[in-house]
Design a protein around this nucleic acid. Sequence first.
DNA 1: CTATTCCTCCAAAACGTTTCGGATCGCTTT
DNA 2: AAAGCGATCCGAAACGTTTTGGAGGAATAG
Lengths: 337, 337
Amino acid sequence: MTTIKDIAKAAGVSITTVSRALNGYSDVNEKTRQKIIEIAKQLNYSPNTLARGLVMNKSKTIGLLVSGLTRESAKDNFTFEVLAGVNQYVSEVDYDMVLFSTTSTKQREKTYTQLCRERRVDGAILQGIRVDDPYLQEVVESDIPCVLIDIPIKSETVGYVTTDNVLGAKKAAQHLLALGHRHIAMVNGYEYAFVSEQRFKGFREALLEAGIFLNEQWVVNGAFQEEKAEREALRLLQQHPEITAFFCASDLMALGVMKAAKKLGKRIPEEIAVIGYDDIILASYATPPLSTIAQNKFAMGYEAAKLLIEMLEGKAHSHVKILETELKIRESTVKNQ
Amino acid sequence: MTTIKDIAKAAGVSITTVSRALNGYSDVNEKTRQKIIEIAKQLNYSPNTLARGLVMNKSKTIGLLVSGLTRESAKDNFTFEVLAGVNQYVSEVDYDMVLFSTTSTKQREKTYTQLCRERRVDGAILQGIRVDDPYLQEVVESDIPCVLIDIPIKSETVGYVTTDNVLGAKKAAQHLLALGHRHIAMVNGYEYAFVSEQRFKGFREALLEAGIFLNEQWVVNGAFQEEKAEREALRLLQQHPEITAFFCASDLMALGVMKAAKKLGKRIPEEIAVIGYDDIILASYATPPLSTIAQNKFAMGYEAAKLLIEMLEGKAHSHVKILETELKIRESTVKNQ
DNA sequence: CTATTCCTCCAAAACGTTTCGGATCGCTTT
DNA sequence: AAAGCGATCCGAAACGTTTTGGAGGAATAG
């Protein structure tokens, strides 16, 4: 493995000069610079990032902390697409990404700060962390820069990216209203999830503006799970046959709701219209294809990485990035012409 | 940021002793060790892996090199599940994983070896690389240990993990044969892909053993793409209405074939049976749910990481790992009872 | 009593880089 | 001729760790 020292010897200059030549400093003669670069190429030199990181005290590496990276999480491709987006930006600006996946067991033994410091990441992106996760508290206290996805915390060292969940939900509800639905139920996620709260708010606003009474009993929690949503929808449909439409806070839950409707022999969308949220892959492959509010998850990852690295380099104007959503109308709300 | 030196000062010992105490060497008194550990905890010490890596000349980091990590690749969750598997093992043995995604443009500017050496990874796992990828040549020549997924190259420093594709394909074909099908078409991937070749071999063997003539015209290439497969199947079905079953070398292509059958008004599975390969998420959500040969992609990642790290630590018995596949019978081949 | 062994500890070198604070030399200015 | 200056180079320290080769002393063996 050739080092800067080998190059220095071969070129007959000091290691200082080699370093400065390779890093584009101005106090080295252009001729010797060319010579050094030439020799470096010949010797197949590649810099040792460990040594560099050690002395510069930064690694040009960011950590992506996701929780529960398991086989199961492949269903909603959320994590994966965010990861792809992060990876994209990171490689554009010549940083590295290392993946930390936290499990409840591992969380006890190592704290967030320890994790980041030990791996010497310059900053971190957190995705899929619950609001009640013990890591979250640490994050805000720690001095390691980080950006959160879908959790609105902002400080000197922490920023976040999210989508406009209120508007997204509103668009979904307005779509149903425009189709003439007046008895609309909502299957939400968790009580304490930020996005759930926002999506409910948007839903309520839409109904309010349309002058429609919001029946609190028709708003249930599906815990973002397909099966739970199915059970809840089944119960709701049996108890309140007047319901004609469902707004679900995730596509996975919407799939559950569709299953419930099918079980009761209700036709979609003629008797029951269903709209989801996220636009996961499965949505467009479901029968009927699922209408949904699309979030650009790739962009979320991309923007998160961008924000973080701008923060690291001290040129972030704002610590917040809010992305748009898009209403995708498919056949679960309106019959194909 | 506290260092080993701070601890040494606080404990009144040398930095050597601190290092040896923390690393579990036997030549330090148990009492002083406890004291050192206590102080380390108090000072919130975490070791600097850069410094450690520099002197030990290894980083306890492996690279995962995937090609084309884009939004689109989310459809077949192959990459993602492999990644999750790699991540799982890696975190079990306290290594790190850094993700390199290669694009055709980036490939020119940096070679595989440069990538690995610069990031100081101890070894790499390559997934989704084509057999004609320029990286591949480099890999075998380079001295950096690596393991390949689904590409059978073996040497002092390279190993691979794959599934038994011949047997898998055979099981699929035998399933169709057992259902009474005698006119079976196959939609394969690329001509030059290792897995395609193997799966075709298994398919042929099954027919041969059943004493059935293999009609070469019924074997087409779908390039692992849904649309291409749909077009090919459409053509095939129109030209050869006697075909009653399809074996596809990937689920995505099987979905395309199902679309083609539906377009021609053929009922699945009564008139056309379809079986895929991979068991992607979409398979079980398709209508009808798709029968397939399941590959445990998570396990592939897990085993690849395990193999690589065993190689790194000089305790790999074999450089090859071949995993089993599983026939999943769903409704695209046999009507629900 | 001397020689040997064991236990516990330590000083210093090494890993490959960046960077601070000059040093040298030739040229221009006064 | 002295002083100043710009261009080009370099020595040495620093980053935080591991490891080598012992040192010192107490206990044991002969």
